[in-house]
């Protein structure tokens, strides 16, 4: 299909546009830093986003999207967004952006056979990605809360054991350590 070919050929440019959509959610002063600094160690945020979008693009335009690959590509970017943004809507809004970017490309291919089916496949892909992203976002948030709880627990665990306030279950069927 010509349109798909067109998208593939213009991948670099389209991913760049998509990247701008994400970057616009940051303050102007930092956006340029995230955008221009290609040092993966000095600018992990910008580079993680770039890498993720690059892989996601291949999936979103593929009528036979591989959900496993898509999920893997989504994880790093959502993981970053999950600690930066407090609401999922703000964190994940960028995914819908690709629909708009692709829609802008479609005008000269309107007549192509099967374009509507392809277009709705893309939309469905983006929607599925959004749902997966929600899963990842929620899992990340859940993980953060677990980390918080564990940290609080870990801090006093040894102490509680040693003060005979709690017991640790033994590895095998022997008597309890603190008895």
């Amino acid at each position: 299909m010509d349109f798909e070919k067109h998208l593939k050929e213009n991948k670099q440019n389209l991913v760049k546009q998509w990247f701008s959509v994400v970057i616009e959610t940051y303050p102007r002063e930092s956006a340029k830093f995230f955008k221009d600094n290609s040092d993966p160690f000095a600018n992990p945020v910008g580079n993680t986003i770039k890498r993720s979008l690059d892989r996601l693009f291949d999936q979103v335009i593929n009528p036979q999207m591989d959900p496993g690959v898509a999920k893997e590509a989504l994880d790093p970017i959502v993981r970053v967004r999950a600690v930066q943004e407090l609401t999922p809507a703000r964190a994940l809004s960028f995914i819908s952006g690709i629909k708009q970017i692709i829609a802008k490309q479609i005008s000269s291919f309107q007549k192509e056979k099967g374009i509507e089916i392809y277009q709705s496949a893309i939309a469905a892909n983006a929607d599925e990605m959004l749902l997966m992203a929600f899963d990842i976002y929620t899992a990340c948030k859940h993980q953060i809360y677990t980390l918080r709880i564990n940290e609080a627990k870990q801090r006093v665990r040894q102490l509680l054991i040693k003060k005979d306030l709690i017991c640790e279950l033994p590895d095998s069927d022997t008597e309890l350590k603190c008895l």
Partner: peptide, 12 residues
């Protein structure tokens, strides 16, 4: 797409 897009105000 524009509608979808503008529903979220994330520009700082």
């Amino acid at each position: 797409p524009d509608d979808l897009f503008n529903s979220i105000d994330y520009k700082i």
